[in-house]
């Protein structure tokens, strides 16, 4: 500890001048971007298992691929030869699902991990970085990890499971827009869930997966919404996930059966039985996604305020 106090400050950064304060050089937007990318980068370092081949294989390859395989096998037992038709439907659905799970759970787990395991949540909270921005960055990092599983599942689906794939037939504008708005919606739902987990006093590690599981049911990922009771179908129609998966599926496989609408569905009782077009799915995704994002922003803000009032930000169940 021989270095003097003054010499340490000479880090080259612009020190806060009079009336200013340290590091307050850039614009507010610049600060947000910096905090965001830092969190993505740090989150990636913490969550990605690239350095550990076994972990990487288990989480990013084995888990999503085996989930798809189980469903494909089940389907061929139940539906017999007709299953071949449904196979692409299921593979794309489960592939996207791995993204949904890691996306939805990611933010909430970041909160729980940081509060309970790393005990860093309070230090992040009392730093000038926007709390929500830091969390979003961490969430996006987890999404990235989930995306690896999605891509691997789709590739295996095409190479091994005979999912028809024709680069020329992919509807790129729909796919790009669906991915953009779909991932935004996933992050919004994740934020909502994070807001809830912030309030819990008990360990709530199982909440995110339970929530993701429930959402899985109503998203039409592996079976069409039509098979569910009408009230549950409504739930599926007002959440963005189903619309996202449907829009993405249409972009990939224009001829695949639809997970939403069609004969006998609740939607048919409203729109007269037509299967929604890709554009309609996209529109529904944008509307439901916007509502979810707005709700998430409001609820999260409220949750943080309440956590500060109740002393939940550094609450741990252990010592």
């Amino acid at each position: 500890m021989a270095v003097t106090a003054a010499s340490v400050t000479a880090g080259g950064r612009r020190p806060g001048a009079i009336g200013g304060s340290p590091g307050e050089g850039g614009s507010r937007l610049g600060g947000i971007a910096r905090a965001f990318w830092t969190s993505v980068r740090i989150g990636w370092r913490m969550e990605a298992n690239w350095t550990d081949p076994l972990l990487f294989f288990i989480y990013s390859v084995a888990k999503p691929v085996s989930a798809a395989l189980i469903l494909v096998v089940m389907l061929s037992i139940v539906a017999g030869p007709a299953a071949a038709n449904l196979r692409p439907f299921v593979v794309i659905g489960t592939a996207l699902w791995s993204l949904v799970t890691s996306g939805i759970s990611g933010l909430a787990w970041s909160i729980l991990d940081d509060r309970e395991r790393y005990r860093m949540l309070k230090y992040i909270y009392v730093s000038p970085a926007d709390f929500v921005v830091v969390l979003l960055g961490r969430g996006v990092a987890r999404l990235g990890v989930g995306a690896a599983g999605t891509i691997i599942t789709i590739v295996i689906g095409i190479l091994v499971l005979g999912v028809p794939f024709d680069l020329g037939r992919i509807d790129w504008p729909v796919l790009v827009l669906a991915t953009l708005f779909g991932l935004t919606s996933v992050v919004a739902l994740a934020l909502l869930l994070a807001a809830i987990c912030l309030q819990t006093r008990q360990e709530s590690w199982s909440y995110p997966e339970a929530f993701a599981g429930a959402a899985f049911l109503v998203s039409g990922a592996v079976f069409p919404l039509t098979v569910l009771p009408a009230p549950v179908q409504v739930l599926g129609l007002v959440t963005p996930l189903g619309w996202w998966i449907e829009a993405a599926r249409r972009a990939f496989l224009p001829d695949a059966p639809s997970g939403i609408g069609g004969a006998g569905s609740y939607l048919a009782s409203i729109n007269g039985g037509a299967v929604p077009s890709a554009a309609e799915c996209l529109l529904a995704l944008i509307v439901t996604g916007a509502v979810a994002t707005l709700a998430a922003a409001v609820v999260f803000r409220f949750s943080v305020r309440r956590a500060q009032e109740r002393g939940l930000l550094d609450l741990t169940t252990g010592s």
């Binding site: 880090g11 080259g12 950064r13 590091g23 600060g31 910096r34 905090a35 790393y118 005990r119 970085a129």
Partner: peptide, 29 residues
């Protein structure tokens, strides 16, 4: 407290970024 999987300097660097320093300055500091 601390992110066990990060290196000591990575964890500090993260905070330097939260305080608005440039990346290079953050490492130095």
């Amino acid at each position: 407290s601390g992110y066990g999987i990060l290196t000591v300097r990575e964890q500090l660097w993260m905070f330097s970024q939260f305080y608005g320093m440039s990346s290079a300055d953050g490492w130095k500091r």
